[in-house]
């Protein structure tokens, strides 16, 4: 479904990704792990069309999308829930959700709002509150809900558990599993290694802009060498 081949990317003269290749299959949950500054978000934003890769290929459903405008990527159903939530702070929860379907699934807006508040009942209570006044956890729910409004075919989640309490982290991973069970393909970027490997089918480890380890999540979980050197366990 998503196929990334030898992508080189960065910011101006600063090269961040030095040839990254990875794949996410239909209905698969793939985790990307790596320490701070490894280049995970840089990869996501190159996939989503915020930046244009210097070289390499990004294919979605067989079509080349490297350097394509972000709205066309949204059209195709490749939706990113970004790191740091990036909800619209000056707008209500309802309006944030509505804008999730600005470009895609617009006719199903009402139905999808019902579905999102069913998943996140807490958002219902805050429906007319400004998103900027929500707690960090609520903002994360809103960001994911907003992403779901577009009826994604592949959902990129960039550190969804960042800044959440342990209880909410548990809830978050339960939700990710649930979405996956419904058939949604998910590309999960995380620093929460153990929980990510528990839910993922396959995983990649990124270090300094390169994929250094890849394989089935279960194998990575039990790889002693990896546990010690990369995952710090």
């Amino acid at each position: 479904m998503l196929e990334i081949v030898e992508v080189k990317a960065g910011y101006g003269h600063a090269k961040v990704l030095h040839g990254v290749s990875l794949k996410v299959g239909e209905g698969e949950l793939v985790a990307l792990l790596g320490s701070n500054g490894a280049g995970k978000s840089t990869l996501n934003n190159n996939i989503s069309g915020i930046y244009k890769p210097f070289a390499g290929s990004i294919r979605f459903d067989g079509a080349e999308i490297a350097g394509v405008r972000s709205e066309e990527i949204v059209d195709r159903g490749l939706i990113q829930v970004p790191e740091g939530r990036r909800v619209f702070p000056n707008m209500s929860v309802r309006e944030n959700l509505e804008l999730g379907s600005y470009r895609r699934a617009t006719p199903n807006r009402a139905r999808n709002i019902d579905r999102v508040v069913e998943i996140f009942p807490r958002l219902k209570e805050r429906f007319d509150q400004y998103a900027g006044t929500l707690s960090g956890g609520e903002q994360q729910m809103l960001a994911i809900g907003r992403g779901l409004m577009a009826e994604p075919r592949l959902l990129i989640l960039d550190e969804p558990s960042l800044g959440l309490s342990p209880l909410l982290v548990e809830e978050m991973f339960a939700l990710i599993q649930k979405l996956r069970a419904e058939g949604l393909a998910i590309f999960l970027v995380e620093q929460n290694v153990v929980q990510s490997l528990e839910v993922a089918d396959r995983a990649y480890v990124m270090e300094n802009g390169l994929i250094t380890v890849e394989g089935p999540a279960q194998d990575l979980m039990h790889d002693e060498e990896l546990r010690r050197s990369y995952l710090g366990m």
Binding site: R69, P82, R103, R104
Partner: peptide
Amino acid sequence: QGARLMGIN
């Protein structure tokens, strides 16, 4: 950036 990711030009 949030707007871009929602497909807003």
